[in-house]
Amino acid sequence: MTKATILILGSNATQIELRGGGSATIGQYLNETVVPTLALIDAGYDVVLATPNGTKPIIDAVSETVDHFGGDQAAYDRARRFFADAPQMNDVQTLRAVIEGGLDRFAGVFVPGGHAPAVDLMQDADAGTILRHFHAAGKPTALLCHGPVAILAALPDAAAYRAALIAGDTARAAALGQDWIYAGYGMTVFSANEEKIAEAQLLGGELYFDMERALKTAGGEVSVTATNFAPNVVVDRELITGQNPSSDHQLATALVEALDRALATA
């Protein structure tokens, strides 16, 4: 018997726009998806994976490396097998289906990273409905690396907000970001400096906006490490955010601890 069920919000995005035209191939990161998920399962929780269109997320090829698992070949192999074969990673629902099935059945929500959430989840209306539910209920809401930009989906018009960021219209974005439910929350996300490295070494071009600015413009109190890619997790009320791929284990620990506390006081 499991302690409770946790909702995982996955992304279906496989391309992200680059400044000046063109796009880069993206997806979710393997370690960012599997490390927290396995930690939840190992701690006695069940998980349900849902995406905007109900198909399984695509793993970003650049994350398919043992380096993201601390050089631990066994951990990397376990992650690959789990994502490929586990029922929890293959029985995927749509975001709309989990809403219609009732969100009260979930004790918390987790959003993995990779660039993908910055394309679809951050402007998805159903993702916004889900996040507003967990915020109102004060249930643990954990997001990793680029995943924290998904909380912008809770804005009244998240698609317009993202469009304003792409257009470079900071004033319009700030206006659209008024009364965001996460304004004033402490949080972290893949840093602007880390993004410059990713743009040069992985994406082959410049993004229209960095994740720090996307969250700060709506009122997020964003903090990042002075050292690129150093682990960093920020917890503020129900919100748990991790900065980068190397924050996977720390975020998983913080999420499990928050869930266990919530169960103990229920």
Rank of each mutant, 00 (worst) to 15 (best):
M122F: 11
A116W: 02
G204H: 03
R213T: 15
T141L: 12
A154K: 07
A173F: 03
L176T: 11
H133A: 13
A153Y: 06
H146G: 04
G204A: 01
V111K: 07
H133G: 00
A127I: 13
A158C: 02
A160F: 01
A158G: 05
D210I: 11
L202A: 04
A158R: 08
G168T: 10
L207P: 14
A118E: 09
F209V: 12
A137G: 12
A192T: 04
A163V: 11
A164W: 01
T141D: 09
V109N: 03
I181H: 08
L176C: 08
D179T: 06
G204N: 02
P117R: 03
L144W: 02
P156H: 02
H135R: 13
A159R: 01
D126P: 05
A118N: 05
G177W: 07
T141F: 07
A116I: 14
D169Q: 10
E212A: 02
H115L: 15
L121H: 04
P117N: 04
E194A: 08
R132Q: 11
D120C: 07
Q178W: 02
Q123F: 03
F110G: 14
C145L: 10
G168R: 02
H135C: 09
A183W: 05
A137T: 10
F190L: 05
W180T: 10
D124F: 11
A183P: 13
Q178F: 02
A125D: 13
A174K: 11
L143D: 08
A154C: 13
D126C: 00
R162I: 12
R172E: 15
G186L: 13
D120Q: 02
A175P: 15
A142I: 06
F190V: 12
A171K: 06
D120R: 07
F209E: 13
V149S: 09
G147D: 09
P112I: 03
E195C: 01
